[in-house]
Design a protein around this nucleic acid. Structure first.
Length: 403
RNA sequence: GUGGGAUUAGCUCAGUUGGUUAGAGCAUUGGUUUGUGGUGCCGAGGGUCACGGGUUCGAGCCCCGCAUCCCACCCCA
């Protein structure tokens, strides 16, 4: 027997119901916010992710499905969605068109990691990206959209918030932080020593307790923001408060992708094990430029569909359509015809075997049909059909032409 | 990539110190004397005990390897 690859799952039956329910819900809400669907390829040039996600990130450093194709191109299965959307945005020259462009997408992402609950090698994300709007109101709108989606799905969450500063204040802060960490270099872990060179900000969310103890007195990012960043962060908090969205400031929230600036946020759930992040996003005003576009402010987020699926509260399934059966085998051909006609407008389940009424009712119930329609010897004689409403238990016999 | 646990029917799980033919519930399926379900009763089918080796008179059980899942680290959605 050939099995699926490690960390790659089939989605069917109940999982598929949840999956599509999520996609439909999220899509509906994104459209209400004025976003448009975009689909980008699963395979992209490796350089795209190296330049956008960043070589210092774990994603690019060790988790990419990277290979050389038959044309000797260095290509990669996408590990995340933003890079491809930005590439498309620049390629279609929308950066030069001006105005605001808002997109949403969903699809498979690939990361070569050790799988566990809520972490797969092929997983699915739903994400949105907004280009051309520098206002922090757009950041708040993103957060509200995530909040709306989670609320509609019945999912509880905590929202973590931070600001990463911009070109003005981040470099100064980074220098200060590096200075601080150099002072306690003897006590920190190997990873943090490496981070000092590659991406010093990332020491802040080091999980090592010893490191965290040493960093307690480290300079805090949000205390070193320039006035623009600081004002925007204040405005963001105000907007969230006014819209009744609870948040907690997490000065160590750095996020794993290099392209974020200013607003960074993460939605976490306490009910799905250690992989607790269910959505994450933020502002990335410099990424379009990095990818050879005209400088364009941008902000976005992504949600992990598999992690969300465990938390979704599904609406009650309602009885739907018809179950059609016969009690005499001579009637089978006729009910096949009837079902064909009825399927133009309704979901129809049909049984090809003649059975007694009790068995048909059982089967109709199992099929979750709203009506059970049966033709027996009486009905055959009188050209009518017996129909029972399985919800309210009313029944009637009607002429075939009225069915 | 490193460490730990698990793997028995379609699903959830029992299975004694190694000892005949490996069990249960749910699901599937058949029947249940006259045409009424979701909730009665009686039956049936379904297992290479993950896979590959080894020890033993004898292995679901012990040993080694391997695959997958789960947990932790790492990281993230």
């Amino acid at each position: 027997m050939i099995n699926s690859l490690r960390g790659m799952n089939d989605i069917l039956s109940e999982d598929y119901e949840r999956f599509t329910y999520f996609i439909n819900t999220a899509t509906g809400i994104a459209q209400k916010y004025g976003f448009h669907f975009i689909q980008t390829p699963l395979l992209e040039e490796t350089a795209l992710f190296k330049r956008s996600v960043g070589e210092s990130s774990d994603i690019v450093g060790k988790e990419m499905y990277q290979f050389i194709d038959k044309g000797e191109n260095d290509v990669c299965l996408r590990p995340e969605g933003t890079a491809g959307v930005v590439r498309a945005f620049v390629q279609k020259k929308l950066d030069r068109a001006g105005g605001i462009h808002r997109f949403f997408y969903h699809g498979a992402m690939f990361r070569y990691e050790r799988p566990q609950k809520g972490r797969l090698r092929q997983f699915h994300q739903f994400g949105v990206e907004s280009f051309g709007e520098a206002s922090v109101y757009e950041d708040a709108t993103m957060i509200m959209m995530v909040g709306d989606i989670l609320k509609k799905l019945g999912i509880g969450y905590r929202l973590k918030l931070n600001s990463l500063g911009d070109n003005n204040c981040m470099p100064d802060y980074r220098t200060k932080l590096v200075g601080f960490v150099q002072e306690c270099k003897d006590g920190i872990c190997e990873d943090c020593i490496r981070r000092l060179d590659t991406n010093p900000i990332r020491v802040l969310d080091c999980k090592n307790e010893k490191c965290q103890e040493l960093y307690v007195g480290a300079p805090k990012l949000i205390q070193h923001l320039c006035s623009t960043c600081s004002d925007d962060f204040g405005t963001l908090k105000k907007i969230l408060q006014e819209n009744s969205i609870a948040y907690e400031i997490d000065t160590n929230l750095v996020r794993g992708l290099d392209y974020y600036s200013k607003t960074a946020f993460e939605f976490v759930s306490d009910n799905i094990g250690s992989q607790s992040a269910i959505a994450g996003g933020g502002r990335y005003d410099r990424l379009v430029e990095f990818l050879d576009g005209r400088a364009t402010p941008a902000v976005g987020f992504a949600m992990g569909i598999e992690r969300l699926m465990e938390l979704i509260v599904m609406p009650e399934s309602k009885r739907e359509g018809y179950y059609i059966g016969a009690m005499e085998s001579e009637a089978i051909d006729f009910i096949v015809k009837l079902a064909h006609k009825k399927r133009a407008d309704y979901k129809v389940t049909i049984d090809y075997k003649a059975k007694n009424l009790k068995n048909h009712l059982k089967a109709a119930d199992k099929a979750n049909a709203k009506y059970c329609a049966i033709i027996g010897s009486d009905e055959l004689k009188n050209s009518n059909i017996w129909v029972k409403n399985l919800e309210n238990q009313t029944e009637q016999t009607v002429l075939i032409e009225d069915f």
